[in-house]
């Protein structure tokens, strides 16, 4: 009966029942199931990697649900990308040891299976704008008004443009294919010239096929 020394701060450890009770309580400390331990890090930590794209080197972050953030190294270099991501998503990051299936092809606009994108945390309108934009095929463009209409808010043309200006996953959601109604390219996250180059090269590829 060494519970007196074991738990000197408890007053009720001096009979057989409480000793058994304390032992039973201690036995309730169950280690987490192995799959939890393995899954916990994936659940907590987003992954990041760098890869090549038509925009030059890009940094890409993804969660267990899909790709969540894409930025060019030129615009948001290394450590700044990580910090921007943490501020925007409030989640820790670790370097990825593999590349999500289909990511590279999707960045280059090649046909094939596209990776999931994780748009968690966006509003319904933001989500709908990005979903509509994602359906615009390679080599084609749509006006901002079309996107607003597809997103169910035909009058929210300017708001749709603002959503695209903050697109977390450019290239994967091809916001560069959304242009002004007069056909001019309009603004782009990475600059209007880049947008025009991207559209020209996509148009050429789509029509050579």
């Amino acid at each position: 009966m060494n519970d007196m020394t074991d738990h000197p701060t408890d007053d009720l450890t001096d009979d057989a029942v409480s000793t058994d009770l304390l032992d039973e309580l201690a036995n309730l400390a169950s280690p987490p199931p192995a799959e939890l331990t393995e899954g916990l890090f994936d659940r907590l930590f987003d992954r990041w990697l760098t890869t090549e794209s038509p925009l030059g080197p890009v940094l890409v972050a993804y969660t267990g649900r899909g790709v969540s953030f894409v930025r060019t190294s030129a615009l948001v270099p290394g450590e700044q990308f990580l910090e921007t991501h943490r501020r925007r998503f409030g989640r820790p990051l670790r370097r990825a040891d593999s590349t999500p299936a289909g990511l590279v092809d999707a960045l280059w606009g090649r046909p094939g299976s596209v990776p999931e994108v994780d748009l968690e945390g966006l509003s319904a309108f933001e989500h709908d704008v990005l979903a509509a934009t994602r359906t615009i095929p390679l080599g084609q463009t749509r006006p901002y008004a079309w996107v607003a209409r597809e997103a169910g808010s035909p009058r929210a043309v300017r708001a749709a443009g603002s959503v695209l200006a903050r697109n977390p996953v450019p290239l994967l959601v091809p916001c560069h294919r959304v242009v002004r109604s007069d056909g001019s390219p309009g603004q782009y996250l990475f600059g209007p010239e880049t947008k025009q180059q991207l559209l020209s090269s996509e148009y050429a590829r789509a029509h050579d096929l």
Binding site: A29, P31, P32, L40, F41, L44, R86, P92
Partner: peptide
């Protein structure tokens, strides 16, 4: 390095926190 330190914190205390 906050993220790396956080990984260590999780590793060290996930069992007690889970219980």
């Amino acid at each position: 390095d906050l993220d790396e330190g956080f990984a260590r914190l999780v590793g060290a205390h996930q069992a007690v926190a889970y219980s």
